[in-house]
């Protein structure tokens, strides 16, 4: 069974991240190598924050993006992605979404959230970037659009937007999921 991985845009293009948010220059090679090792088909999802706020946007939490306009923007971007996923599932592929934990938009299990963020952008990222359990706004829109087939889609977050990001642990988590996918196929 073919495994199709839908990646958060920044895993193939860290230039979409906010200033000081990137973990590499461009393509995150360790994730790419892992996907290659597992023989995965790779698809890149659009970055909702880049198209909405441009390259000079500030760090933000979920509450700052959570407006009807941004939700509509996420849904518009997620619709063709969901349609492509449905086509892959219909073709018998296994579909895995790889998001970014800690992201207000692409988070899977953890998302940036705070009722206090706003106004002057003076919150240092390495001291108090707040996260809470829950998905990001784009991930929510995507999963909502996948109703009916969502149980056939596996979703995992790489914690690149977390202050205590542990790359080895995150890659091991992804490796285990991809290995499990291969095992299930057998």
């Amino acid at each position: 069974m073919r495994t199709v991985c839908y990646l958060a845009h920044c895993l193939l293009n860290a230039n979409a991240k906010v200033d000081e948010g990137a973990r590499c220059q461009g393509v995150h090679s360790p994730v790419l190598a892992l996907l290659r090792d597992h023989g995965c088909t790779i698809r890149q999802m659009p970055c909702p924050e880049l198209a909405f706020g441009g390259t000079r946007r500030f760090w933000a939490v979920r509450e700052q993006y959570d407006t009807p306009a941004y939700r509509a923007h996420c849904r518009r971007l997620a619709e063709p992605v969901a349609a492509q996923m449905r086509a892959d599932l219909a073709a018998g592929a296994r579909v895995i979404v790889i998001g970014i934990d800690g992201s207000p938009s692409m988070g899977v299990e953890l998302t940036a959230a705070s009722d206090e963020w706003g106004g002057r952008p003076d919150k240092p990222r390495d001291e108090d970037y707040p996260v809470t359990l829950g998905a990001g706004l784009f991930t929510e829109a995507l999963l909502d659009l996948l109703s009916g087939v969502v149980l056939g889609v596996r979703v995992v977050g790489i914690g690149q937007d977390l202050f205590d990001y542990d790359e080895a642990a995150e890659l091991a988590k992804l490796d285990a999921m991809l290995g499990g996918a291969a095992g299930d196929a057998g």
Partner: peptide, 20 residues
């Protein structure tokens, strides 16, 4: 602070390059 490591260089690639 991590600093800004973005390369500020982006190349557009067709699917056949991503999935050779």
């Amino acid at each position: 602070m991590r600093g800004d490591v973005r390369s500020r260089r982006v190349v557009v690639v067709p699917d056949v390059v991503v999935n050779p």
